[in-house]
C-alpha cells in the first residue's frame, strides 16, 4: 500500500492547459473522491495517476517514488473502468487472473487468488461464464475482482457505478466502502455524483475548470464550502443562492441557504412566496417557492406536509446556517447573519 502525492501537477493538450497546478496529498489507506461537473478534469487527473495520460508538468509520487515516467504496469495500481472493460473472449476467472498470468504466476496460485476474490464478491458461481452472459452488476463486480486480485498499492475507480440502476448503485456503493475498510488500501474514486462522494469518501476533492476548488471531509465541504461553486455542488437538493435586496440587506453579494435550512414560519424574519411545485418523497417534502426579489427557492421539509401549488407560505432561514459570498464567489467570512424580512 502507498500514498499518492501530486505536486504542482498540470496537464496540457498542445497549448491548451486543462489541469492547472494541482497539489494534493493522499495518505496511505485513504479513500479520496474526485468530484466535479463534466469536463472539470477529474477523469484526466485519475488517468494521469494511472499512467494512461502523460503528466506534462509537476510531479506525481506514488509511495514516495516519482511515477511521472513509469508505465501503468510499473506503478502497481489497479483500475476499475466505467465501461467495466472486461475482455469479452475470456471467462470471469480468466479476466480476474489475467494480470497474474502476465506475471507468470503458477496456475495454482492464480486459481487460489481468483477464488478468494470471487468468494469475497459473491462471484463463485460465475467463474466459467463470459462477460456477455452476466448482468451489469455482476460485470462491475468482476471488474472490481480483477483489480482486487492484483493486491495493488493504489486502487483507482473511474465512475464505476454510473452504468448501474439506482438500486444496484446504492448496493454496490456499500460493497465498495466495505471493501475499502477490509483491504485498507488507498482508493481514488471519480464521480460526478455528489451523493456517492458524500457517502463514501474520507476526503472529497472538488474540481472545477481544471482547478481544485476545495479539499476536505464531506461534512467540512457541506458546512464550510470554500466557494460558491462548492456550496452549490455539495448537497442535494442544491443550495439556494439569493441575490438582490435580501443579499444587500445582509451586506453581501450572494446569500446561500440550503433547502433543509429553510422552514415554514411566521413573523418579520420570514420571506413570503408562492408555492410553484411540490415533490412528496414520503420521508421529505420538497417545495419550490417563488419569492419576490429572490427567485424560486427550494425548501426541503422533513416529513409529510400538506402545502399545495399556489399556496402562499412564509419561509424562515435558519440563521445559524446562512452563507454569505462576495462577488468573487468566496465566503465573506465564516459568518452567520440574521435573515432579513
Amino acid at each position: 500500500m502507498a500514498g499518492v502525492e501530486l505536486k504542482n501537477l498540470s496537464k496540457s493538450y498542445g497549448d491548451v492547459e486543462v489541469l492547472h497546478d494541482i497539489n494534493l496529498s493522499i495518505a496511505d489507506g485513504e479513500f479520496v473522491v474526485f468530484v466535479g461537473p463534466s469536463g472539470c478534469g477529474k477523469s484526466t487527473l485519475l488517468r494521469m495517476i494511472a499512467g494512461l495520460e502523460e503528466v506534462t508538468g509537476g510531479d506525481l509520487l506514488i509511495g514516495e517514488k516519482r511515477a511521472n515516467d513509469l508505465s501503468p504496469r510499473q506503478r502497481d495500481i489497479a483500475m476499475v473502468f466505467q465501461s467495466y472493460a472486461l475482455y469479452p473472449q475470456m471467462t470471469v476467472a480468466e479476466n480476474m487472473g489475467f494480470s497474474l498470468s502476465l506475471e507468470k504466476r503458477s496456475k495454482k496460485e492464480i486459481a487460489e487468488k481468483v477464488q478468494e476474490a470471487a468468494d469475497a464478491l459473491k462471484l463463485g458461481p460465475f467463474l466459467n461464464r463470459k462477460p456477455g452472459q452476466l448482468s451489469g452488476g455482476q460485470r462491475q463486480r468482476v471488474a472490481i475482482g480483477r483489480a482486487i486480485v492484483r493486491n495493488p498499492q493504489v486502487f483507482l475507480l473511474d465512475e464505476p457505478l454510473s452504468n448501474l440502476d439506482a438500486a444496484l448503485r446504492s448496493e454496490t456503493r456499500v460493497e465498495i466502502s466495505e471493501l475499502h475498510q477490509r483491504m485498507g488500501v488507498t482508493m481514488i474514486y471519480v464521480t460526478h455524483d455528489q451523493v456517492e462522494a458524500m457517502t463514501m469518501a474520507d476526503r472529497i476533492v472538488v474540481l472545477n475548470g481544471g482547478y481544485i476548488e476545495q479539499v476536505g471531509s464531506p461534512m467540512d465541504l457541506y458546512n464550510h464550502p470554500a466557494t460558491e461553486f462548492v456550496a452549490g455542488f455539495i448537497g442535494s437538493p442544491k443550495m439556494n443562492f439569493i441575490k438582490g435586496r435580501y443579499a444587500v440587506a445582509a451586506g453581501t453579494t450572494t446569500l446561500g441557504v440550503r433547502p433543509e435550512h429553510l422552514t415554514i414560519g411566521e413573523g418579520d424574519d420570514t420571506w413570503e412566496g408562492k408555492v410553484t411545485l411540490v415533490e412528496r418523497l414520503g420521508h421529505d417534502t420538497i417545495l419550490y417557492v417563488r419569492v419576490p426579489d429572490a427567485g424560486i427557492l427550494t425548501v426541503s421539509l422533513n416529513g409529510q406536509h400538506n402545502q399545495n401549488v399556489g399556496d402562499t407560505v412564509r419561509l424562515r432561514p435558519n440563521p445559524d446556517f446562512i452563507h454569505r459570498f462576495d462577488d468573487q464567489g468566496k465566503p465573506n467570512a465564516a459568518d452567520l447573519v440574521q435573515g432579513q424580512g
Binding site: A50, G51, L52, S71, P72, R73, I77, A78, M79, F81, A85, L86, Y87, F98, S99, L102, E103, R146, R150
Partner: peptide, 8 residues
C-alpha cells in the same frame, strides 16, 4: 487501457 493497467 485495462490490459496496460493489468501489466500487459
Amino acid at each position: 487501457e485495462a490490459a496496460r493497467i493489468d501489466g500487459a
